[in-house]
Nucleic acid binder design. Structure first.
Lengths: 343, 343
DNA sequence: AGGAATCTTGCAATCGTTTGCAAATGAGTC
DNA sequence: GACTCATTTGCAAACGATTGCAAGATTCCT
């Protein structure tokens, strides 16, 4: 056994032509045999497959991709519009990325990851698409690039975006109904007795803007004072100081906080405690995402759940459909309020 | 301007040959001009560059890669040996991945991500390498594949692995000195007064085994009872039940816990509280990693810090060196004890 | 002006795989 | 045994960019 394997691997068979020579057939036949086409005689195929296995032959995907004009690779772009540093280590995006990797693998695709800083080059999306390396692209988060994505979508079909859905937009998007999520959060705060609500987070990115707007909807409908936006960055180190100073200024004049993400909510919890405010008695708090951390805070976070796994499935499903030529609608997932102890 | 652009983009220029026709030169010249070689006349180059820009031309990376036998892509493999599901969403690996993406981008490389389940196919690493799509590979975590990686390393130089370093191993590895980290953790627990220490986590993976061994070193040296291993899975949902039952059984007979990761430590904190044990008074607790969550628990976690950014830099640096033909030693990073309030 | 030296450029082969077409083989029919 | 028809194979041209070689164009010298 060991001897046979030795003998087998002695000759280096790197190309389909090497293998063809060994099998005594033409390269074309080898290609067809390995591709599993029906045109090849069963015995020939078996012989070729055996040799391929024996020598550990793997067809060169570059060459194959070039010839077939498809690569079996899906690009995943993470635009870091605002708040450049660290966003890629944002839990939510990373979790989504994990599920995407699973899902793409399941469908036989590889995943090419690219961080992009749109400020540095306006061309990021075209460059990625035009590289010839990917069959399609999933953009994680619209960041501040909504317009750029719209433009590209007009001329390129093989793209799906994670983000917020807007009436009449041209690109295919998968995402949670953020506005509805915002409403659920605000309703919960108000039902618990909150009257003066603050929104902690950056209202720049569309998703967050929609969450804020949803909360505002409810405040208006209930005849309460407008929701107070308290701007922060996303990365924990910067955000925690910002939250501290916001709370120092407004902590005693509000009784409900809707945080743009669970990460921010957890920080709020820490800072509220530091300022001697108790949750949920003095201030009620609702987060967004339902990341693992939401269960581990003290007290555990009431939050608005996004179904990340379903999101990943949706992204991949729609993209594959589009690769197949179908036209697809956007997919808006329903958020779900998860009641724990902070509101 | 708009008109010119219109006129410019009217003709589709997809290949270097299209562009050559437009510029009135041969494809070879265009190739040289865009590659910035010195052999091209300055005026010709400028003309070609202008046309390329105007028409948004991007050379096909597949073709280029095929011809030059290098792709500009680095593969990142995440083997999921034990505990298949969810490990990819493990915070530590994800954070490392984020830094890797940064670092590779900075050096002009793209990143191809591949989840692998070695149980399903023993061939995973060869397949990835042999695909012809990547110039080199970074393996994140040895999982239970130490031997497989060693074998591959004998015949393939362009590989660097994140993980634990063992005396005399043949593959180039970057990682924290886990054993030393384990010692630091145990020393801290003992200095605080702990005598009967438990280790929470799976001792199967090498990194964790080394952490456990480090703690054991100290227990032995101090003449204390052996460290009690309490096995758990890595994913929070399964781990939290397991921890609960472990603590129900042993909670009152131990006074110090060293958790294999911060994620597990955070769960311990929750479960300890649930069982009416106070931290650090009844039980002292030390984590590992210093993830963002370590700062957000109540009380904040004392933990052993791994410098993830330095790790990513090291991985990329060593890999690029190896691509350049150098021979490189492994890089072992020092862990650092971060004292907060749990021990 | 003639010739050598230097710059630019084009030609054509190459990277490794796929695939349309046609040739070759074999089976089946009358 | 001649013929049709289906299988199986080989041939050679793609895919798009790169690069060694040689030819053409300039420049510079004496």
């Amino acid at each position: 056994m060991a001897a046979a394997e030795d003998k087998g691997t002695r000759i280096l068979v790197r190309t389909i032509t090497d293998l063809a020579r060994l099998a005594g057939v033409s390269p074309g036949t080898v290609s067809r045999a390995l591709a599993g086409k029906s045109l090849v005689n069963t015995q020939t195929r078996e012989k070729i497959e055996a040799l391929a296995r024996e020598h550990g032959f793997r067809p060169n995907q570059m060459a194959s991709g070039l010839r077939r004009q498809k690569t079996g690779v899906i690009g995943v772009a993470i635009p870091l519009g605002h708040d450049t540093r660290q966003q890629i280590s944002d839990s939510f995006f990373m979790t989504l990325l994990g599920f995407l990797a699973d899902e793409l693998t399941t469908h036989g695709y590889d995943l090419m990851l690219r961080r992009v800083v749109p400020g540095d080059d306006a061309d990021w999306l075209d460059r990625f698409i035009g590289s010839g390396m990917i069959d399609g692209v999933i953009v994680i988060g619209q960041s501040d690039q909504f317009e750029r994505i719209e433009e590209v979508a007009d001329g390129y079909r093989s793209m799906v975006v994670w983000g917020n859905h807007q009436e009449g937009q041209r690109h295919c998007v998968v995402g949670t109904d953020n506005r509805l999520g915002g409403r659920l959060a605000a309703e919960r705060l108000i039902a618990g007795g909150a009257r003066r609500i603050a929104f902690v987070g950056d209202t720049g990115p569309m998703e967050f803007a929609a969450r804020f707007a949803g909360a505002q909807d409810v405040a208006v409908r209930m005849g309460l004072p407008a929701v107070l936006p308290l701007a922060t960055h996303l990365s924990p180190d910067r955000a925690s100081e910002e939250i501290a100073s916001h709370l120092a200024a407004y902590g005693r004049s509000i009784d409900g906080i809707f945080a743009a993400t669970d990460t921010l909510a957890a920080l709020c919890l820490t800072e509220l405690r530091a300022q001697g405010l108790s949750v949920p008695d003095d201030v009620k708090l609702v987060g967004f995402d339902d990341l693992p951390i939401a269960r581990q805070t003290i007290p555990p976070l009431t939050t608005v759940r996004q179904d990340i796994a379903a999101g990943a499935r949706g992204l991949v499903d729609l993209l594959l459909r589009r690769l197949g030529g179908e036209t697809t609608e956007s997919l808006v997932l329903p958020p779900e309020l998860v009641v724990r102890e902070t509101a």
